[in-house]
Design a protein around this nucleic acid. Structure first.
Lengths: 349, 349
DNA sequence: CGTAGATGTCGAAGCGCTTCGACTAAGCGT
DNA sequence: ACGCTTAGTCGAAGCGCTTCGACATCTACG
């Protein structure tokens, strides 16, 4: 394997000049640069990443801290990881995976101290997350995907649950729906302080109340059967319901099946809108689900970009980015009862 | 940040002794070791990963080569990546992600030459994969997840499509089914040389023929609508069909919906068995899908374990591991027409 | 009792790069 | 014509570790 020394000899210059030609830290004469380039081409030279890291005290590696995920986010999570890795690569960085639980603080600290990573991307951030405290004490730059309860001073990018829920409600209200329930993640996720569950729930409550509409929220385990059970319960307790906002893909499938089993036609009689989902999942149902898709790719790219800026010291303002889910209106949302000539839609077209 | 020098001074020994205490390469006296340990604890010392790598010429980093995945494997792929990262961490290795297309050979070569990774795990291997050729020429150890057309000399772990398909057929045949179709991935994946499509297709053909049963195979895009269309076509062309083996989650959901729309009760009239899937996906349907789940976790662990063995030089035999999918019999497979008192099941209970 | 082989420790030489200080040769304003 | 900045280059000193050779002790065995 060719080293910088080999290149230097072949080009008839010193190693430091080769280094400057490579990094651009100091100017290099045009002819010299050409000879160096030729030597590198001839030898097929690639700089040794490790040696470079040791000497420069910059590894160009960022770590992704992700608790092994049980929640059904899988599709989005993979998208996120992939896009983060791509964004890193575009900037000459590498992404390493650290599959460590939220509470394995000691392990995380040890890993940080090995100085393998210049910075850390934190996934699945809880409202109160011990890893964040650790990182604040360390000198390692970090960016949160998600956010703690008090994220003011911290770089973070998260789903804009509030805007997403508002848009979901708007979409249904414009279609004439007034009696809308929210089918969320499990009650356990709520008590565990899982950000999405809590933030989306609060937003749903607020935006429905703002419109003087009744607030109906159900927590539900992530399975089709749990979704069915919840719909059965709702059919009994909320007979005038005409639409469902869901944030739980597995339950959504069950819920739709159960609605149809109750003789509801979708979307003629009943609308379903799944948020923090994806068109891919939407395509798995029939009628094709109207979804609001999680911005996994955007979050990945943004988080990496911001983290690298911070590492390289070009960033002063903390990153506070909230990205709403994108609406992909398909076949499970349609005009509600008020649109059937009874009343005009409250807003819009 | 404490260095090994600090530890050595505090413990009153030389750095080399500290190094030996840490690596165990040479024996260290009991009392000395205790003093070193105490010094490390007191300083909160963690060895610098980069310096260690440079000196030892071993980075303890393995790279995961994965083409950005379009196919619907997402759930399994994430499982795979996670388990690979965990297995690596358990052995003191790090996993870095290299999101590079199958054909980006130059990029892959450059990355390899940077010597960041001691070894490479290759995902989404095609029957004829240029990356494999590249790796064979390089000196970097590698393990395939999947396999090429001629994988004899290469370390690889893959799904045992043959055993999986055979078990799927057995399961249905034992239940009394005789007319079984196979719903596979797209025709495009077949012509592109996508291993799973081709191997599963060949196995289905063989095992059905072995049982003197008709071979019905349909390729289908990965969406519910495509699945529905295929079922409509089958209803016309293969009216006596009583069971479906599927390898395409999105299409499976559509297929089931269409079957029910045709008045087929599942599993009373018609059985569906989804292979290379997962119980999690199975739980999204009602009735709950009988699945054969892809061994993502096992493949990840196995691939990493074998790769590390090879890196460390403890492995002589090439890894040739084929793991079948696990059957999780749920509610979409039931007795076929022959079990209705007409004929006894061909085998088993 | 002599000595071959462990055992235990140290100092020094790198690993392949970056970066600092120093130096020379131009180019510039005044 | 004078210093002064800038461009361009070099040599050497590390970055924080591992590993090699050397050496001093200690044990065991014929």
């Amino acid at each position: 394997m060719a080293t910088m020394n080999d290149v230097a000899k072949l080009a008839g210059v010193s190693v430091s000049t080769v280094s400057y030609a490579l990094t651009g830290v100091r100017p290099v004469g045009e002819k010299t640069r050409a000879r160096i380039q030729a030597a590198m081409d001839q030898l097929g030279y690639q700089p040794n990443a490790i040696a470079r890291s040791l000497a420069s005290r910059r590894t160009r590696i960022i770590a992704l801290l992700f608790p092994a995920i049980e929640r059904g986010l899988s599709g989005t999570a993979l998208e996120f990881v992939t896009s983060a890795a791509e964004a890193a690569r575009e900037r000459g960085y590498h992404l390493v995976l650290w599959p460590i639980g939220n509470d394995e603080v000691a392990e995380t600290r040890d890993l940080l101290q090995q100085r393998l990573a210049d910075g850390v991307l934190v996934m699945e951030v809880r409202l109160d997350d011990p890893r964040v405290t650790l990182l604040q004490q360390s000198s390692t730059p970090f960016t949160l995907i998600g956010r703690t309860a008090e994220p003011a001073g911290l770089d973070h990018a998260d789903i804009d649950f509030d805007a997403t829920v508002r848009e979901a409600i708007d979409h249904l209200v414009e279609l004439g729906h007034r009696s809308i329930a929210f089918l969320s993640h499990s009650a356990a996720s709520q008590t565990a302080g899982y950000g999405p569950t809590i933030r989306a729930g609060e937003s749903f409550e607020k935006h429905m109340a703002d419109r003087n509409l009744p607030v109906v929220i159900r927590h539900c385990d992530d399975s089709a059967d749990a979704g069915r059970a919840t719909v059965r319960e709702l059919a009994a307790s909320q007979p005038d319901l005409t639409a469902l906002v869901t944030m739980n893909d597995a339950a959504t499938f069950g819920a739709m099946a159960e609605l149809m089993a109750h003789g509801q036609r979708i979307p003629e009689d009943f609308s379903v809108l799944s948020i923090v989902s994806s068109p891919k999942v939407g395509a798995m149902s029939h009628p094709r689900l109207t979804t609001m898709s999680a911005p996994g790719t955007e979050l990945g790219r943004l988080g990496v970009a911001s983290l690298i800026e911070r590492i390289e010291g070009n960033q002063t303002e903390p990153l506070h980015e909230l990205i709403p889910c994108r609406l992909d209106a398909q076949a499970t949302t349609g005009p509600g009862p008020l649109a059937d000539g009874k009343l005009p839609p409250r807003e819009g077209t």
